[in-house]
Amino acid sequence: MTATGPTRPPHSAAGTQATPQLAALAQDDLVNRIAQVLTEAIMKGGFAPGARLTEATIARDLGVSRAPVREAARLLENRGLVVAVPRRGFFVRSFDAADLDQIYDLRMCLERHAGGLLAGRLTPEMDTALSAQVQLLHRLAEAGDGDRQIEEDLKFHRMICVFAGNRRLLKVFDELTAETRYGIAMIGRLYDDPHEIARTHEPLLDALRSGDATSFAEASDYHIGTARQRVVAMFGPG
């Protein structure tokens, strides 16, 4: 019996296309990149509330086919930024005061619990990271970069959820982040003095350093509750 070498896998010659598995990964990456481009456009007012996301136009502008644009729109639907209307397509979601009131209500519950999990377990490395984030908020206030300050504000709160160690809590927080950021972007500045945004985070860090879960709950409720009142008031009646 003649010995034979190992069977050569199909399409393994140099210069051939990637395997289906690798092609799928590349497609997923493309969808996520398109979703990020669309998210930034929505946040910056490129698509107004109620505007239709026209697949053909977006695909042409980005130099891609319509399929990944459609998948990206579905991602934005899952994140609460667009709504799908049967036989009409995807439209940028419009928020009202009631929507944002509910978002902040859930955030208060999540972040109070996250702080309770973290209280007494704050390491020096965590403390340094959170402190650096507050200082970054001050620098962005000095630079007048309001859009970036909103992003870094939310990142501070996400860090607390990460450090709390509950992955499912973090997942829910992430699902709310796009909606929260969009709501704030629609309003503009929450505070006349952008340094006030940075200062409002300092009591949260002080409470975590104390190791007292009750102190953090009180500081968090005040911090998020104040933002909630401002946001809802700026949107007017629901």
Rank of each mutant, 00 (worst) to 15 (best):
M186H: 04
L154S: 10
G120T: 07
H201A: 14
R189M: 06
V162E: 15
P194S: 10
A178H: 12
L169T: 07
P124I: 12
D153M: 06
S94I: 00
D192F: 03
R70Y: 01
V92K: 00
A67E: 15
H138C: 05
L118N: 01
T177R: 13
R199H: 13
L190R: 02
L117G: 05
A132V: 03
G89Y: 00
T177L: 11
A198L: 07
P194F: 04
R93M: 01
L137T: 06
D127P: 03
L117C: 10
T177W: 03
G116K: 02
P203I: 06
E142N: 11
L154G: 15
T177G: 06
A164T: 04
P203F: 09
D105K: 12
V162Y: 03
R181G: 02
M126I: 12
N166F: 08
G115P: 02
N166G: 12
R79H: 08
E142L: 14
Q102E: 15
L136H: 12
Y191L: 15
H157N: 10
L117T: 10
R168P: 00
F156S: 04
H138G: 09
L154C: 14
K155E: 14
V172H: 07
F173L: 14
H157W: 08
R70S: 05
L169G: 05
R181T: 11
E202I: 13
E175W: 05
A141W: 07
D145N: 15
R148P: 01
Y104I: 02
C161K: 07
H201R: 05
D105S: 15
L154Y: 11
R121K: 12
F95G: 03
D99S: 04
P68A: 10
E71V: 05
A178P: 04
L190K: 09
I160Q: 05
P194N: 08
R139L: 13
L76W: 00
G165K: 05
F156P: 03
Y191R: 13
D147Q: 14
A185N: 14
D174T: 10
V83K: 00
R181N: 07
L169A: 06
L118W: 03
L110Y: 11
A73P: 04
A98M: 09
L204W: 01
Y191G: 09
L81F: 07
V85L: 00
V83I: 07
A114S: 12
V85K: 02
P68M: 04
E152S: 11
E125H: 12
L170K: 03
E77T: 03
D101H: 06
I197H: 05
R88A: 00
L169I: 04
P86G: 02
E111R: 07
G188Q: 03
L118I: 11
L110N: 00
V134Y: 08
A73Q: 13
R112A: 12
A72T: 04
L136D: 13
L81N: 02
G144S: 07
M159A: 14
R112M: 10
R158F: 06
T200F: 03
E196I: 11
L117V: 12
L81I: 05
N166M: 08
A73C: 15
G144F: 08
R79A: 08
T177H: 08
M108P: 02
H195F: 11
R93A: 05
R167N: 13
Q133H: 09
T128K: 13
S131K: 11
L117S: 06
V69H: 02
L170N: 05
M108D: 09
L117R: 14
